[in-house]
Design a protein around this nucleic acid. Structure first.
Length: 130
DNA sequence: TTATTGACCTAAG
DNA sequence: GCTTAGGCCAATA
């Protein structure tokens, strides 16, 4: 039952794009992985980009996250930060502090708009992906 | 159709 | 640690 990385099930993880259309694209993969992020854990856009196979398309991950609140099921976009651990997407929430509040509520400490012990709380989807 | 923007990443100096 | 440059896909004007 060795789980081969990269062999996800896009059909089961199919979601709805911000446009409201259901189609297979990297957006589905991004949302799928974002939902696999454990509670109290964070990951970076580049890690997800690599997990989906795009690698350098980290910007797409961020773009998709901006629409995470419009997609169902809900996506824990607050658990996704940039490589420096900075809450770059806090401004995309209802309130700029919403992201920090959510993270702190999950057990993730925030320091100066950055994730404390980011390296320790880093969750690699390509390595610990279920 | 092209051009610009966007919750970015990595490399090199 | 900071700046400059290149790359990626999708949505918007």
């Amino acid at each position: 039952m060795s789980v081969k990385k990269g062999s996800s099930n896009p059909e089961t993880l199919k979601t709805v794009r911000p446009s409201g259309k259901t189609d297979d694209s990297i957006f589905d993969l991004i949302y799928a992985i974002a939902r696999q992020i454990p509670k109290g854990r964070v990951t970076s856009y580049g890690a997800i980009a690599k997990a989906i196979g795009s690698g350098k398309s980290a910007r797409l991950v961020g773009w998709a996250m901006s629409a995470a609140g419009k997609v169902k099921p809900k996506v824990p976009a607050h658990r996704v930060v940039n490589s420096t651990g900075l809450l770059s997407g806090k401004h995309a929430f209802k309130t700029p502090t919403q992201m920090q509040e959510l993270l702190e509520k999950e057990g993730t400490k925030i320091k100066n708009d950055k994730v404390a012990d980011f390296k320790t709380r880093f969750w690699d989807p390509s390595s610990e992906l279920i």
